[in-house]
Write a protein that binds this DNA or RNA. Structure first.
Lengths: 161, 161
DNA sequence: GCCGCAATGTTGACTCGTTCCAGGAAAGCG
DNA sequence: CGCTTTCCTGGAACGAGTCAACATTGCGGC
């Protein structure tokens, strides 16, 4: 919930022109973390009246490039965006309803985790700069009702209840 | 490189009928770890002459469900499959060429990692059953040539060189 | 060995998220 | 003020994946 001025500053700092669509999309991403492009388009339109869908796609791409938003896309889900960047946090994804929640990274800085503990790794020369972690499981409410069937994994879906 | 008989046994053990497409796909996944569906279709066809693409999609889905293969899908990449299952290993993905390599998991059993160390997690009641880790970086050969540009991240692409 | 049914495979059209295109209008910013 | 970036309208294309209806084929039972 950053104020418009702050967002404007962030855009300028990234070397981007400050335009209404960009502010709207940026705001939307802050307001609704982990939602897909469709929802963002909706949110941006709610704020501006009209924005073309490719303006939004464009903006998202540019913001992602500049590191102002982060694109995430768990298995079977469409692209989702979040505004929390730079703190290298991870995600919890519910296998049955698809909700995504943030989890702070214990270590803090990236890469918070390295693939090999000591020396002589299986892949020397591979320069790891980030460890992306997705925790799969069942969220509280899905865990409550005892699984419709054992094989109900309709893949991550829409919505951030 | 398991022999056909072994694969057949595995299929039966999973309660699946043994059919040519299934054997072919299973074999292909063993032969070519980390490749996408297209390549697998090609490999299966090379072995059988003809297989419809949904037969392959179907088979992959069923095999994934039964845990005979594992589906992986790093950001910006299409679905890929591998036959190493049950050992909860992780992956190294090269940002510039997209190669995927396996890394053994230090812990062994899933979930090898839990999101919160001690008690009082931010998300109690969320039952984590698996921690999926992707290490992003640059592979040896891409690290060698000093980055075509600083923003060259064409997302994970095809091929397992 | 042979039958019959349910599980699989085939075919071809189709969905859906996403990207690309092009020409003209609008609007930032130096 | 003028140049350049960005946006718009509105298509059209794209590729991975899915659906549906019909043909085929494993495999347990006879």
């Amino acid at each position: 919930m950053p104020d418009p001025q702050e967002l404007e500053r962030v855009l300028r700092a990234a070397g981007l022109r400050v335009t209404r669509p960009r502010l709207a999309v940026l705001h939307a991403v802050h307001d609704h973390p982990h939602v897909d492009t469709d929802v963002l388009i909706g949110a941006a339109r709610a704020r501006l009246g009209t924005v073309s869908h490719q303006a939004v796609y464009d903006v998202l791409q540019v913001l992602t490039e500049r590191g102002l938003v982060r694109r995430i896309q768990p298995q079977g889900s469409v692209a989702r965006y979040e505004a929390r960047v730079g703190d290298n946090h991870h995600h919890l994804v519910c296998r049955s309803c698809g909700v995504i929640s943030d989890v702070d990274c214990a270590a803090g800085a990236a890469p918070c985790l390295v693939p090999w503990a000591g020396e002589s790794p299986a892949h020397p020369d591979f320069l790891v700069d980030e460890a992306e972690v997705i925790y799969w499981g069942r969220c509280a409410s899905c865990a409550a009702r005892p699984a419709v069937s054992d094989t109900d994994r309709p893949a991550a879906q829409r919505g951030t209840p």
